[in-house]
Design a protein around this nucleic acid. Structure first.
Lengths: 104, 104
DNA sequence: TTGAAATGCAAGTGAATGCTTGCCTATTGT
DNA sequence: ACAATAGGCAAGCATTCACTTGCATTTCAA
């Protein structure tokens, strides 16, 4: 699961979207907290390793930041990468911006 | 390529994003027009069939609408499905919206 | 220090994905 | 009618993806 390089691909998976939902409802959760709350609040019964790998993906694209304290690792959502995503196509047509945009 | 059911997955592919870029710059293109302009304006050398399949995906999730005239089929971008995508996580935290949102 | 708790690492597997290949249908122009 | 144009359908292939499995590492409590 290491090939995901941009926020678009990161958002393609429903489990990762639900993780962002959970972090929006309660930010700064640990991996175990997330596993428990995803199961009870979202009927999502993924394994710990699966959720951990999803968090790695979300962190690699900047949608989640982590903060380590002892043996705990807290995960915080960062919505900054979300803003340019949709605005890319909401610009008024007719004004050719020139090149190929950015990401490809 | 028929398994893509939601706009998130449709946006996961770079080629599909470039197609939306092209339709933003010049709406209502045919398949052949798109192939030519994607090659010249975006250095994207995908085959006609590949682009056609991508357009099928974009249409199936509502990001592209088509209009048939004789042997031509014009493709128009529809940004309506883009709006709720990001706002899903831009809501202020603390206000638990209740269920699991919608898409999953 | 010993064990439990929280997390990390990595190989393997089945399914989905993007693309190609090859042929077919429909419409237009001469 | 005939060829050319624009597009459609479907099978096959290589890659990527999400997940599992199994074990290792780090931290804390008793």
């Amino acid at each position: 699961m290491g090939g995901v390089t941009d926020a678009f691909r990161a958002l393609a998976d429903p489990t990762r979207r639900t993780i962002l939902d959970e972090l929006t409802a309660r930010d700064g959760q640990t991996l175990f907290e997330l596993c428990a709350r995803l199961a009870s609040n979202h009927d999502l019964a993924s394994s710990r390793q699966a959720i951990s790998q999803h968090l790695d993906v979300l962190e690699s694209v900047g949608l989640v930041r982590t903060r380590r304290e002892g043996r705990y690792k807290f995960h915080e959502i960062d919505t900054a990468p979300l803003e340019p995503i949709v605005e890319r196509w909401l610009r008024r047509p007719g004004s050719d911006p020139g090149g190929t945009g950015e990401t490809g």
